[in-house]
């Protein structure tokens, strides 16, 4: 009987799926075995892709081009890249690790800058800006002019709740407090009151987020069980 690679792959995938799903009923050695297999495969794949897609084109090919007297990068740029790479490789040994500090510091500096820029430009300012839409004034005016006063008030109420939720959530995290010796530090009344309210909104937000993760996991479970069911049907020759 000739087994083609696709069919073997299907069987392997089905067995691995079954083993991992069985962890829901309890830990066992075969699950651990699969776990380590997974760590190995994913590491090997990720590293190979990085070498292939980045290290080769950014470093290896330019060096080869340089050696073949057909430079694709200017020498200074190539020199900096090689220097950084050598520094990073120095991290392999504890004795030389300190030589690599500039390379990791470059990563830290760039990472921090992107985080700062992203937070300010991408989140804080747009989110403040979006508060402008808290009160749906178009709907309010329409309702008011049409004599739907209750609906108009509802629009205002909704806006107040939305703004209050944002403000009280922010206030919940206020860290500063006044020291009271042996007793717990105390925040001022306004902050504490807002924070108390914020606790409810935060709990609701966390519940919404948690339900999102639950539903995502449920989607994955449905897909896996569907896959197992289809594979079983295939093996049994069902239509």
């Amino acid at each position: 009987m000739v087994l083609d690679l696709d069919f073997i792959g299907l069987l392997v995938a089905a067995v691995l799926t079954l083993v991992v799903l069985s962890y829901a009923l309890g830990d066992h050695p075969i699950f651990r075995f699969v776990l380590y297999l997974f760590i190995g495969v994913s590491a090997g794949y990720a590293a190979a892709v990085a070498v292939q897609d980045v290290v080769f084109p950014q470093l290896v090919y330019p060096i080869l081009d340089e050696l073949n007297a057909a430079p694709s990068l200017d020498l200074a740029e190539l020199g900096v890249r090689v220097l950084l790479v050598v520094m990073l490789l120095a991290k392999l040994s504890p004795r030389t690790a300190r030589l690599g500090n500039p390379a990791t510091s470059l990563l830290a500096g760039v990472g921090a800058a992107l985080a700062v820029g992203g937070a300010a430009q991408g989140t804080i300012l747009p989110q403040i800006g979006s508060a402008a839409g808290s009160f749906d004034m178009a709907s309010f005016n329409l309702a008011w002019q049409g004599g739907y006063y209750l609906e108009a008030i509802e629009v205002i109420f909704n806006g107040i709740v939305l703004v209050l939720a944002t403000v009280s959530t922010l206030a919940y995290f206020h860290f500063g407090a006044v020291s009271r010796g042996k007793q717990e530090p105390l925040r001022n009344l306004l902050v504490d009151s807002l924070a108390w309210l914020g606790g409810f909104f935060i709990a609701i937000a966390l519940a919404a987020l948690f339900s999102g993760v639950l539903l995502a996991a449920l989607g994955a479970l449905v897909e896996r069980l569907d896959f197992l069911q289809r594979t079983l049907s295939l093996l049994l020759g069902a239509p």
Partner: peptide, 21 residues
């Protein structure tokens, strides 16, 4: 290797989270 080992294991780990969560 990717499609028949890594993807099924990882997706299944995600699926297990449905029960554990």
């Amino acid at each position: 290797i990717f499609n028949n080992i890594q993807v099924p294991i990882e997706t299944s780990l995600m699926a297990v989270l449905a029960a554990s969560l």
